[in-house]
Simulated assay, not measured.
Amino acid sequence: MDALTLLLTRRSQPRLSAPAPQGEALENIKLAALRTPDHASLAPWQFLVIEGKGLDQLGALFEQSAIDNDKSEREIQRAPQLPVRAPMIIVVATNYQEHEKVPQVEQLGSAACATMAMQMAAVAQGFQGIWRTGAYAHCPVVKAGLGIAEENEIVGFLYLGTPVQEVPQKPVPETSEFFKPWPQK
């Protein structure tokens, strides 16, 4: 698949199974993350690759978060199952660096670009993924359990694996709805 087709047909795939990317495919995914825009070469990101029993441990962390945050009994019971929806999760978080010319918003943008780059690298190699956030991405219990410093943010959980089914194509939006010439005549 060429790069333009990849970008123009991008879709998230929530139904994933084994195998997850391994070896050279996983290394390519990691390298794609490290090639994203990074003003002043700060490397304002950090990544945790979670597989196997680590997914169960992440599920236990989600469950503890749900309990600590007074979620419903249904949400508490569901929490441990969330990470096992894919054979691999890459947690993407910021690693903010103090810099007079690079505000945190730019550093957050770089980490977000790294997430999309990894997803696209996975798709280009025959895998699929979905970038998830939600309450667990913003929970101090989850951040602490993952060893992410309080001042940093979880940008997302990138679920990766082999697609279980074809995803229908999304309608293509009209670009004129979102792009306007400036200045207006």
Rank of each mutant, 00 (worst) to 15 (best):
L8V: 15
Q125V: 05
S176L: 10
E151L: 05
G109M: 14
S65E: 06
P37D: 05
L16V: 02
V102C: 09
A43V: 14
P21V: 06
Q125N: 04
L31C: 03
V141Y: 12
D68S: 10
I50C: 07
V105D: 09
M120K: 08
I130H: 02
Q77H: 07
A135N: 15
S72M: 06
H39N: 06
M118L: 03
P80R: 11
H99Y: 03
E24S: 06
G59R: 15
I89L: 11
P21I: 04
V49W: 05
N28T: 12
T36W: 01
A117C: 15
A66V: 04
V84D: 11
E150S: 14
L108W: 13
Y159T: 04
A32K: 00
R78K: 15
Q64K: 15
T94V: 13
L31N: 12
T115G: 04
Q184R: 11
E100M: 05
N95D: 03
Q165P: 00
E63S: 01
Q169P: 10
P44M: 00
K170F: 03
R132Q: 10
L16R: 01
V92H: 00
V102H: 13
P83D: 12
Q128D: 09
S65Y: 03
G156P: 02
A25R: 03
A114H: 01
Q107I: 10
E27A: 14
A93I: 01
A60S: 14
Q77K: 14
N28K: 15
G109F: 01
E106R: 04
D70M: 14
H39M: 04
V102G: 05
C139R: 07
T94L: 10
G134V: 07
T94Q: 10
R74W: 11
V84N: 08
I89Y: 06
A137W: 09
L82H: 00
V155L: 11
M88A: 01
A86S: 13
T115M: 12
A121D: 07
F127A: 03
L48V: 13
G54V: 07
A3I: 09
T133L: 14
S41A: 02
E153K: 01
Q46V: 05
R132V: 08
E51P: 12
D38L: 09
P181G: 01
P163M: 00
K101R: 08
E98Q: 05
G54N: 13
M120T: 11
K71N: 13
Y136P: 05
V92M: 13
Q165S: 14
W45N: 08
E24I: 14
